[in-house]
């Protein structure tokens, strides 16, 4: 049975999922496993997902809610590294607690994964998790890097210390958006001042990819609505609207997260050379121990 490392990633929303997916796919050569059944997941994820789904379906059949969160939005793999991307749909305490409960249950199973690599429903596992990594990708919003980190640590710190042996996150000396320990890390999106959202990183990439179209889309959006861009939520909404507009020919009617992941409104070259993406990729390379593919 193959031993693999797994990185469990909690993102705030769909745009984070799309950004991470594009980063791992385009820069690191990860492949999305779109056809995996529960039995294909490395133990103990196989039994955890199967039992969770079975239990929730048998109890209340609220499968839409279940799918919302308890299963990963995307699964990517490269050799013996598997990245699971979960979406918490926000960073408030209740949603973070749900993520913590999931992690607690995962770690309980992980401790006995060698003893119970399968269950009567999912049998003959091909891989087993040997090491687990945990990554949090959230927006700084108006509260800033520090406050978001503190909130996340208050929810997950004890569990990570107990399960991974991580003593606490240390803020990177050259990148205030990053704080990490050996097996867990938090990467927060924001501007140079330490506030804002992922859009603050993405709009420059769009502009770099096609300045003319970017300005046209910006003018169009600004003409349609008035924005108080001093306010971070309005700034983020404006950015998302611009990105949406840019991709309408390719993906008409779709959300900006679709544009991030499934269109080239951000060109590969501009994406790869973006200082923000470069910093983030460098962190991933070091954190996961995997070389960039390009």
């Amino acid at each position: 049975m193959q031993e693999v490392d797994v990185c469990i990633t909690f993102c705030e929303g769909a745009h984070d999922v799309a950004f991470l997916h594009r980063t791992l796919k385009s820069l690191f050569g990860f492949v999305e496993e779109t056809n995996w059944a529960f039995k294909d997941y490395p133990a103990p994820l196989n039994v955890q997902f199967q039992a969770t789904v079975a239990k929730h379906f048998s109890q209340d059949l609220s499968h839409t809610k279940l799918y919302d969160f308890l299963l990963p939005k995307k699964v990517l793999r490269r050799a013996d590294i598997v990245v699971l991307i979960f979406r918490t749909d926000g960073g408030d305490r209740a949603k973070l607690d749900r993520a913590r409960v999931y992690l607690e249950r995962f770690f309980k199973l992980l401790r006995k994964a060698q003893t119970f690599p399968d269950n009567p429903t999912v049998r003959n596992p091909t891989a087993c998790v040997s090491r687990a990594f945990v990554l949090f990708l959230y927006d700084a919003e108006g509260v800033g890097f520090k406050k978001v980190r503190e909130t996340l640590y208050s929810v997950f710190g004890a569990l990570l210390a107990d399960s991974l042996g991580d003593g606490g996150w240390v803020v990177d000396a050259h990148n205030p958006a990053l704080a990490r320990a050996e097996r867990s890390a938090v990467y927060i999106w924001g501007d140079d001042e330490g506030f804002g959202t992922l859009e603050d990183l993405l709009l420059p990439i769009h502009e770099e990819s096609d300045p003319e179209r970017f300005n046209a889309a910006k003018d169009c959006i600004d003409a349609l609505c008035s924005w108080d861009i001093a306010k971070i939520p309005q700034r983020a909404k404006r950015g998302k609207s611009i990105m949406c507009l840019l991709g309408q020919k390719k993906k008409p009617g779709s959300a900006h997260s679709v544009m991030i992941d499934q269109t080239k409104t951000m060109s590969d070259q501009a994406f790869a050379s973006s200082p923000a993406v470069v910093s983030f990729s460098a962190f991933l390379q070091d954190f996961l121990g995997v070389e960039q593919a390009v």
Binding site: Q48, A51, F116
Partner: peptide, 11 residues
């Protein structure tokens, strides 16, 4: 509860 494990199938 979490993994529906089977004591008989322990390794």
């Amino acid at each position: 509860d979490i993994g529906d494990v089977d004591l008989r199938r322990a390794r």
